[in-house]
Amino acid sequence: MTDTPNNPVTRRRFLRLAWGAIGGLATLEVGGILFAYLQPRLAEGEFGGVIDAGFVDDFPPASVTHIVNGRFYLTRFTDGGFVALYQRCTHLGCAVPWDQTTSMFICPCHNSQFTDTGEVLNPPAPRPLDLFAVRFTDDHVLVDTSTPIARDVFDQSQVVYP
């Protein structure tokens, strides 16, 4: 049978389309399975899981504390609010140390500088330090390190209060 206006899809073309569709579907399926399979493997209590940073009252206002096993800094502002800043520089991933004398984060790799809220003072960092979600349970500060939250600017809504 050939293509005619009355019969636009011949058997041959139908089969070819069907094989193509099945092949495409199978590729998507396998791709999806592999993508899900290779997702980060996380564990509770260590970096990548939820970290217990300690008692709320252990963090004095206007302080920046390095939580080493969580790879983040916990900033407490004068009004008592918290942000958890991922220590990874947003430029190329170096660990950014807090410099107490200048009250800035200064990256050793390309000299990016950040404030205690994580805002960029000096490029090449393209955006503020990433955040981790903070919540409070029984006077403890719990930080979820599974997903760094990227942001373009700092605003007050990012500060969490106990």
């Binding site: 993508f35 290779l38 997702q39 980060p40 493997r41 996380l42 990548g48 790879r71 991922y86 990874r88 430029h91 190329l92 991933g93 170096c94 790799c109 390190t145 997903t147 760094p148 990227a150």
Partner: peptide, 27 residues
């Protein structure tokens, strides 16, 4: 760390591709 960080700058898929490659947010 420096070498794989550039992956995250690929538009749209960069972030998830980076996580997939590293098996997490960092090396």
């Amino acid at each position: 760390t420096v070498g794989t960080s550039v992956v995250s700058y690929i538009p749209v898929i960069g972030q998830s591709l980076g996580r997939l490659l590293l098996g997490g947010p960092e090396v």
